[in-house]
Design a protein around this nucleic acid. Structure first.
Lengths: 164, 164
DNA sequence: TCATGTATTTTGATTTTCAAACTATAATCC
DNA sequence: GGATTATAGTTTGAAAATCAAAATACATGA
């Protein structure tokens, strides 16, 4: 078996060509952007793993708390889609979280098939604690940025979020 | 059980205050930044889940291929830390991936305790296919951005990556 | 009304994961 | 150098997470 030696490390952004906006430059920027996004995702992912391990939760549980904390009450199906598991898996997961008093189930107002899951006060507290860790990370990661740069970053990231 | 109704949806970035760079403004920008990052992470995460399900891989396996594709050969320990699992877990995972001919193990040049894992040609091909999907997503997400904005985004994200 | 589609739960099997014990090598300290 | 301690990786057995498929209940539309 031959082995591939090619890899993509050390792709660094150059901010010197922001005026050369032809299509070739755009293409290479897309590649660079793709790889910094992947790297950012990977690093956030392993940071989250480490945090979660320390606290004794599972990654999915924290993800659930994060989603409910950020978006508010949600239907099982919605939540399952966002987390990326089947509803069957989510049912047993939510069972445990209900038992731990982090979330409650309540009926959907208009659709009697649906069930809304929402954080309890205890769950909300947990979310806020986790959110504070995230905020600390965010602050650390952007410590060397100017306020203007941070504002630009919020703008660009939220525009990406809206395109999903 | 009382239920918490507070949540944090609809936090949107405003790019109108980039000149008001006092400390209070910086603080609220950090909060906004934190939440767009969390949302971005969540959305990427469920996108990756969906992709992975379709292809019949596990999320961890794709993560491994992604890491090896981006960073090149790595020691088991390094890889386990980046993925966020124990080395015991990684051993069985890599066993399967070796069997599938996606990766090979080879001895570390200087440390005889260590083992390097690296992509085979087949694994490299898989990585490139997955990377192409990521690139397509990146392109879609930034379709409405100017070239300058994309360059700025690469710059800001890679600076965050360097602070991890 | 009846057929089809959607939301959730349950079940049993499979897969993933961990912690702990074990082997082998490296580094450190007398 | 030789003993001790630390690190890298594997194995093992048990616990946890996950899935697919079946079952139930409700919704939607012909």
């Amino acid at each position: 078996m031959t082995v591939a030696h090619h890899h993509l490390s050390n792709l660094q952004a150059s901010d010197s060509d922001s005026t050369a906006a032809n299509s070739t430059a755009a293409h290479s920027t897309d590649h660079a952007l793709n790889h910094v996004i992947i790297e950012f995702y990977e690093k956030l992912s392993s940071w989250e793993h480490a945090i979660v391990r320390d606290k004794g939760f599972s990654l999915s549980q924290v993800h659930t708390i994060e989603l409910l904390g950020v978006h508010g009450a949600m239907r099982m199906k919605e939540l399952a889609d966002k987390i990326g598991v089947t509803t069957g898996t989510l049912t047993v997961q939510i069972d445990k979280m209900v038992e731990a008093l982090w979330v409650v189930r309540r009926p959907h107002e208009t659709d009697r098939r649906s069930i809304l899951v929402e954080l309890t006060d205890k769950g909300q507290t947990l979310f806020l604690e986790h959110d504070a860790l995230h905020l600390q990370l965010t602050t650390d990661l952007t410590a060397k940025m100017s306020c203007e740069e941070r504002v630009v970053l919020v703008n660009l990231l939220s525009r990406m979020n809206n395109e999903f």
